[in-house]
Design a protein around this nucleic acid. Structure first.
Lengths: 337, 337
DNA sequence: CTGAAAGCGCTTACAG
DNA sequence: CTGAAAGCGCTTACAG
């Protein structure tokens, strides 16, 4: 089927001009007279010609395309980052191609290979579920920006949320209300989750507080939050007076599970989420949460990538953006105090 | 940068074999001895060679890639369809490339051009925000499956939810509870919204009920649902006893806005959503809603596309999948009855 | 603006 | 398995 598509040759024939002229017009060259341009464009649209990008790319060694890998289409967090990212790429005249691995390591590898094989000019990785070191050999030949923890590598640029600030905002807020038994429900084994857990532990220690046992939701989902809450309720451990959930989805799972018990939020337990998703803003949830600069993270990732693509800058760049706290109705002073 | 990447030539030199052999190995040909295969693979990984897919595609006229256009990354509805879609494509050995237009018509056009330019073997369009007739000329040369209302066209296959069944399930349920003043809050001008509105009106008439004035959320978002509710509350119209919102996000917006009034759901007003998203399942929402066969819609779209790609089938295929009703706690008998 | 040439990194088809 | 050739649809660089 593809072979029957019109080519530049066809456009040139129909317009009665050279193939070189058609090529200039398609690349928006300023050296073409308005009359010729109009004639070529008319011929092109008459026969339904559209440039074959892969042929162009093969010849020019540029694709003007940014590949975006994203961990999970289900997490609204990525949608927001993607917003900033896509708008900025579009503004710079870049095409954007997205792939995802649906949280399966195999498919994630394949998704990135697809982007690589398509010869995108650069790659943006949103929270990949594998160590970045795997990607490093790739990054020697291809600009890569990861929305992930800063690396020592000069080959991969990073843009990330300041986890230390996030944890501090949450814990300061809870401690200010009088809480001391604060539990973190973490997001599992992924790099983002590990980073957040580490920040929590550090800040708790700074406050002279015991970070307590590890309770994990294993993934950034509602179901994970429910399961973790189940385990907590069944455990012999004393209940915490406040929970810092690794993201809003986990917090929603916690809330949902607690709604099935006699424990009331925030009367008996305070709860904080992370990401300030649409869910958190609803009156029925009114979740106290952390607002990451999601759109800015997306834009900055693109700016950083394009900078590396166009300048060939050899040194790594690592941007860290500070989040803010949004206090709603799931946090209050502990009951028995 | 791209020019410094290793090519087949480099692999052949290092392995001491011909370029043709390398090509056979990379395409997983069975005519290669195990020894040769191992040698080639070793050489490839030693120098970090990965096949240049765009060169392969240009030469072979196949990309083994399916392009997926999706309207809005924020709507969890698409994430679920994408799940079925990606898993099925992966199972058939196809790569998948996603683009989105963030609900802007210009960017949507560009997003589709990108996929087309990349010479994907076929396109799947998830609820495009423009008339499919624009795409028809494209579809003459390229297999296209749209998750959208069935067309008369033989060039575009469609897979869709049975809107008539959905509307009937909702209205039968509400009428069974005793409701007669049922209002639909529609999703705006897009094709999916129009289809759903039309189904609502038809089924209302079949019941001999008045579909009432048109109230639109203008988009499938929480904010749209809030605005529509605002307008409803301020209007002179008598309040309905039940609302059928065009999707769960709109329903959430309605609920959120009503939580700010003295109107209680379902005591004073019944509410039904559409899509059975994670939101609807939460105890605090417990939204009665319609469950589309999302994963099946995604899988079937891929199967239909691959069928057209491989057989060149000239006739259009139009699949319609019946949804089901999930009754939760936002619907009950009307109060004053 | 035209025209002819070389090349991008592969695949395809074929003779050996 | 090798080797040489042609071609995919473009871009690039150049002489005119």
């Amino acid at each position: 089927m593809g072979s029957s598509l019109p080519t530049m040759e066809d456009v040139a024939n129909r317009a009665g001009v050279s193939r070189a002229l058609v090529s200039l017009v398609m690349r928006d060259s300023p050296k073409v007279s308005d009359g010729s341009r109009a004639a070529v464009l008319a011929a092109a649209s008459a026969i339904g010609y559209r440039p074959n990008l892969i042929a162009r790319n093969l010849a020019s060694h540029r694709t003007m395309t940014i590949g975006v890998f994203l961990d999970d289409l289900h997490n609204p967090y990525y949608a927001e980052i993607a917003d900033g990212l896509l708008a900025t790429a579009y503004g710079h005249g870049y095409h954007t191609l997205i792939t995802t691995g649906r949280r399966h390591p195999n498919e994630q590898q394949r998704a990135i290979e697809t982007l690589f094989g398509m010869q995108t000019d650069g790659l943006i990785l949103l929270s990949p579920r594998f160590p970045l070191t795997i990607i490093e050999s790739l990054a020697v030949n291809l600009p890569v920006v990861a929305v992930a923890e800063p690396l020592k590598s000069d080959h991969i640029d990073t843009v990330s949320n300041d986890e230390r600030v996030g944890a501090r905002l949450i814990i300061d807020h809870l401690v200010g209300l009088g809480h001391r038994r604060i539990l973190h429900i973490d997001g599992g084994e992924g790099p983002a989750a590990t980073m957040r857990l580490r920040a929590f532990r550090r800040v708790m220690k700074m406050h002279g507080l015991d970070p307590g046992p590890r309770i994990s939701a294993e993934e950034f989902t509602e179901a994970g939050g429910e399961r973790a809450t189940d385990r907590l309720l069944k455990s012999a451990e004393p209940m915490p007076s406040a929970i810092f959930a690794a993201n809003d989805l986990i917090a929603a799972g916690v809330l949902d599970r607690l709604d099935d018990t006699k424990i009331r939020v925030p009367r008996d337990l305070s709860l904080v989420g992370y990401d300030n998703t649409a869910l958190a803003t609803m009156r029925r949830m009114s979740l106290t949460t952390i607002d990451q600069q999601r759109v800015a993270i997306g834009s900055l990732a693109v700016e950083t990538l394009i900078d590396r693509i166009t300048t060939g800058r050899p040194a790594g760049q690592h941007h860290v953006l500070a989040p803010s706290l949004v206090v709603r109705k799931t946090t209050a002073a502990p009951r028995s105090k």
